[in-house]
Every structure is written in structure tokens, then in C-alpha cells.
Design a protein around this nucleic acid. Structure first.
Lengths: 330, 330
DNA sequence: CACCTTATTCTCAAACATAGTCTAAGTCAG
DNA sequence: CTGACTTAGACTATGTTTGAGAATAAGGTG
């Protein structure tokens, strides 16, 4: 059972450093927040990352360990996202002999207490992805400008690349009227990167169509490939809430229907139909009444609910539905 | 932009070796096959695995590279599965100073030509997971025996663990009549591991309820944690075919509806309703007619179809539906 | 030709989703 | 105290998708 049976295991792979990056998410009344670490000076923000230490029994244990040490937060739900390991993961790594490998995780925490003691703070994830917040349509007009840039990119395509560019962008961003697929966060980011509309593309020296100045000004970027990791995390979470009751990891012990709906909307970046949302959550038996009501609703008092923790045992493959992306008819 | 900003990056993490393990899948008339590597003597089979070499630009490129070198197959679809890195990933690793990290991938190939030149061969994945093939109910009775063992495990639970054991097993394996969720491959394997019904649990020295002799005799195990990786791969693939047209990576250029259905059934391990399957695939516009027919059907000739490759551009988030696990009413 | 096999088309009801309307029960300004 | 405003929560009408099955078509074979 020993590893010697691996005939091709070579010595050339030893110079690998592994670290764990975390997309740590919480929900506030102002929307989804993500934990970021500020650098010295005007350097871009970074996701918290820590080393993989030998004493950790599992990768996840390692992650929980250093995050809880660093922040004092109690991680609720934790899930591995993806392992990122391009040789040019960040510009400075080119020509480096050691490859750096980063295993991304997403974690949900309930507590928002500042804990700003250090260089750690919470930031709305829409600071980095303003185009992902479609709750009030394209209110600040970011999307309109993105679409214009993309239109230019398509128009200037060499003949054989035209169709491809067209379909990739309609797929990621939808046709103006067409249905927006809120899960394609990573696809959208990667398309913008490729076109050159995010600064990272220029920083990495990628060959892009758009000049550096064309970068979307409303969006803040992150260190190295952290915006890509964050995109992966948002994508995953937006998908997950549909078939697993993970939103409740972000809710207080007691909440109203509308609070729950607002949280889901904030995560998904889209608005939902109130009566239908209520019916769905009710029918799935995800919540039960606490008996008390919340009077500070601004209108009629709302019943306070609690998550039915039993449901996890009855059928864990259940979630709070969104207009499903399945029925994207052409 | 350099890595020095990572305050906690310690020197203690250097002794990590990374390798890429691959679940390489193809479909044959006899069901889904997975590429395995035989060891010397009576040692269990292994998944092919190769080192991460510094010259590979991306992880995926590295994987494609050595797999194609090793097997000569042309990998079609490739997707990262999960990074496995428990300190005791295999028994011999305990007490070892260097941690071994394995990044699992799933890859689909169309060609089945033997290529048995070396120690590499194809094996039905149900050899390792006989209980995952429910196409003809519980025909060989494996499942019945598993359920009996599980019943014993529940019966002998200490009072406070009873409910938990009960719900975990009904969730993974379903109640006798209840709907079987074909995606929970990993959950089922891990439950069996924990109970002690797979030899790996005893090999790893895990504390289990069942004695070593109780291991499910119909199932063959794999080296180290490879059966776990395979379970992850099957799970992912079973999920993916529902919303992405990946099955077609396993189909010949021209095929009939029934061939397509049989392939999906073989992967999912369940039977499907013929007219409904046809309707679904037709409505989604996944296929088009070639004009010719296949006469060796044993009955009325069937039209030969081809995959509409354009669909990938029109709407990539589409797949061949299975009875959706969503509507698992209590 | 009778009969077996698979292909292909229809039908029908149940379940679900979408997009509303309408009523209830609070707060707050005057 | 009233009327405007706010949110809660129940209900309705309509269309779409699914699950299960019957009915018909078109080949082969004894």
C-alpha cells in the first residue's frame, strides 16, 4: 500500500508550496459581505490565506483552524471550491522555480461583529463584482457599459472568431431582454478578463483587446487571482442555495419571511416574487413558526420563523428555490 | 503583488508532494468503464496518477499531458473534482513527515481500444460499487444485504446516536420503497466506510462497528483512497449530465435514441421512461437527425442522430434530464 | 401471415411555476 | 381618530413541465 508503486512519481515536483485561501461570507442588512485583508499602502485587497501546516489532519481542519485563530469567528458551513495552480498564478511567479498551489474554500459565518483589530475587514462582494447585482436591474448602468464594450469586441472580431465571441457573450451576459443566469459569475469574469476589461488581465500581461484604460471603473480588483477565487465562491453559493438549505447558516436564529427573501436575493443578485417565494419555502417545510412576531417591519407585524433543523435529516437535498435556470428556453 | 504579504506563510509547509489522480471514464455497450492500473501481485487496483511537473502551465494541462502520454487517449471533457489531502490519506503516511496531496480529476474519452500494452486496463465502475447499479432493481441482492447490515448498525446504536444513524442511512440509501438518489455515491461510500463494511476502513485502522469479515464481498476495493475519488467522480458525472450535455462526449458520432438512453442509464445506474426521455432530449434541441437509419435494432429501424454541437453555443446549461431529485417529497 | 422486437407518437392527469389580485394588520402624520 | 402608507399573508388564474401509460408504426423471423 505504500506510495512506491507510483512508477512516475518524480523528484521534480518537490518545490510546491500549498496554501488555503478562503472566501468567508456573511450576510448583513446591506448585502453579502466577504472577509478581506488589506495590504500596506494602496495595494489591492486580498482574500485571507494561510499555510497548510503539517499538523492539520485534514485540509478542512487546517482551514478552520487558522481562520478561527485569525478572526475568532466560528465557521459554520465550509466547502472546498477549487484548487488553483497555474504556473503564472500571479505575475511575479513566472520564472520562479517553486510553483504555488492554492486550495480555495468557501465558508459561511453568522457573526458580523467587526473584529477590525487587525488588517481584516468585511466588504460587500459587489464592490468587486458590481455587475453581479441585478436586484434593481442595471441601476448604476455598469452593465450597459459592459455590453457596449463587448459589442465592440464582437464587432472587431476576425471573421472566424465572430460567432464564437457572440455566443460566448450572450451566454454569459444574456441578451438584453433574455434571462440572466445568476450562476455564471466565473464565466462572466473570465470573459471580461479575456477581453481586457479587468485590470488583472493587463497586470498579468495577457494579450487583450481592450486597453488598460477601458477597465470597468466601478469594480475594485483583488490581489493576484483572488477575484477569480471569489467569483468561484459566489457561483458555488448561488448554485448551492437552490438545493441545500445553506442560507440558514447566514440567518439569525429567528427571522421573518421577508428577511429570508432579502438574504437570498442579496446572494443571488436578483429579485424574487414574494408570494411564490413564501409558498416554496413553506411547502418544503424548511421553516417553522416560533409563535412570536416581529413588530418592526414598518407595516403589519410578521411572524418570526426558525429553521427546521430536522429537515437536514429528513432530506438534505432541498433548498430555497430561485427561478430555475433550467427553463431557459431559446 | 509578491507573495511576501502573506504574513502567516511559514516554512513548515514545504514538504508537500502533489500528484494528479484521474478518473478516466468511457462508455461501452457493457456500461461505464474506468481506467485502472494493476499493481504487482494481488495488490488492489489503482487509479492512474501522475506527478505535477513544474513545466506544466496549468494543472489541467499537466493532467492532459501525462494521461495522453501514458495512454495515448485523447481526453475530451476534463474537470477538476476535489483535492484530497488528509494526513492519513493512506495508512503508511502516518508518521511520515511529508504530506501527500492529490488533486482528483474526471475525464471522458470516447475511444475504448484496449491499449493494454502496459499495466493499464478498463474496468466497469460497478465492480467497485455494485450497489450503485440499480438498473434492474436490486437484482443480485447486494443492496438487501447492505440494508440488513445497516439495520444492525442502527439497532445497536447507543440511544443518543440512534436517530442520527437512522436518518443518515435513509438519506443515503433511501427507504425501501422511497426514491433512490443516484447522486449520493460519495455519501453512501462514506457511510459504508464508517460502519466498516468496506475493507479500506479496517485497513486504515478506523474504529468501526462491523468486523472486517462483514465487508461487502461483491465489491472490489482500490488502492489507498482511490475508491473515494472514484465515488466523487461518479457523483459529479451523474449530477453533470443533468445540466450539461456531457454524455455526448461518450457517444459515437451517430447514435440512436435508445443508445443514448442506455448510456445515460448506465451512468446514472437507473432506468428511464423511454417516451419521456425522448421528449426531453428532443425538446431541448440537443440532437438532430442525420437522415440515415440503423437497421440492427432488432425491431423497427431507428433514426440515427447526431449531437447538435451548436447547442453548446446557444445554451451550455442544458442536459439530458433524469427524474429530478428535487421532487423528493416526504 | 402471425408474432416478436424496437421505434415513435399521443394522451392525460398531477405537480409546479409565473404573475398577478385581494385582504389583514400594523405605523405614522395630521 | 382618521386616512394614507407599509408590509404580511392568503388566494387565483394560467401556462409549463413531468410521470406514466396506451396506441400505432415498421422492421425481422418462423
Amino acid at each position: 500500500m505504500s506510495r512506491v508503486d507510483r512508477s512516475r512519481t518524480s523528484a521534480s515536483q518537490d518545490a510546491v508550496t500549498v496554501d488555503l485561501s478562503a472566501v468567508i461570507v456573511t450576510a448583513s442588512p446591506d448585502g453579502p459581505l466577504v472577509l478581506v485583508r488589506s495590504q500596506d499602502g494602496a495595494a489591492p485587497l486580498a482574500l485571507p490565506a494561510g499555510p497548510l501546516e503539517p499538523q492539520h489532519r485534514t485540509l478542512e481542519a487546517g482551514l478552520r483552524n487558522w481562520v478561527e485563530e485569525l478572526t475568532g469567528y466560528n465557521l459554520g458551513y465550509v466547502e472546498q471550491l477549487y484548487s488553483f495552480g497555474d504556473a503564472n498564478r500571479h505575475a511575479s511567479a513566472r520564472g520562479q522555480t517553486s510553483r504555488s498551489l492554492s486550495i480555495g474554500y468557501i465558508a459561511l459565518v453568522r457573526e458580523t461583529r467587526p473584529k477590525q483589530s487587525s488588517d481584516i475587514s468585511w466588504a460587500s462582494w459587489y464592490r468587486f463584482f458590481p455587475w453581479e447585482d441585478m436586484r434593481s436591474g442595471d441601476e448604476p448602468g455598469v452593465m450597459t457599459r459592459i455590453r457596449e464594450s463587448i459589442a465592440g469586441w464582437i464587432a472587431e472580431a476576425p471573421h472566424d472568431a465572430r460567432q464564437d465571441r457572440e455566443s460566448r457573450s450572450t451566454n454569459a451576459f444574456g441578451k438584453s431582454g433574455d434571462r440572466w443566469n445568476e450562476e455564471l459569475v466565473l464565466e462572466r469574469y473570465e470573459l471580461l478578463y479575456e477581453i481586457g476589461l479587468v485590470p488583472e488581465a493587463h497586470r498579468d500581461g495577457a494579450a487583450c483587446w481592450a486597453p488598460r484604460e477601458a477597465a470597468i471603473v466601478e469594480a475594485e480588483s483583488l490581489q493576484s487571482d483572488h477575484r477569480r477565487i471569489l467569483a468561484t465562491g459566489i457561483s458555488r453559493l448561488r448554485g448551492k442555495i437552490k438545493y441545500r438549505p445553506v442560507v440558514f447558516e447566514l440567518m439569525p436564529p429567528r427571522f421573518t419571511f421577508l428577511q429570508l427573501q432579502r438574504t437570498v436575493e442579496a446572494l443571488a443578485g436578483i429579485e424574487l416574487h414574494k408570494p411564490n417565494f413564501r409558498r416554496l419555502v413553506e411547502n418544503q417545510g424548511l421553516v417553522e413558526e416560533t409563535g412570536s412576531v416581529s413588530t418592526n417591519t414598518g407595516g403589519r407585524p410578521a411572524r418570526l420563523l426558525r429553521f427546521r433543523r430536522d429537515i437536514l435529516r429528513e432530506r438534505p437535498t432541498i433548498g430555497v428555490g430561485l427561478p430555475s435556470a433550467r427553463s431557459q428556453k431559446g
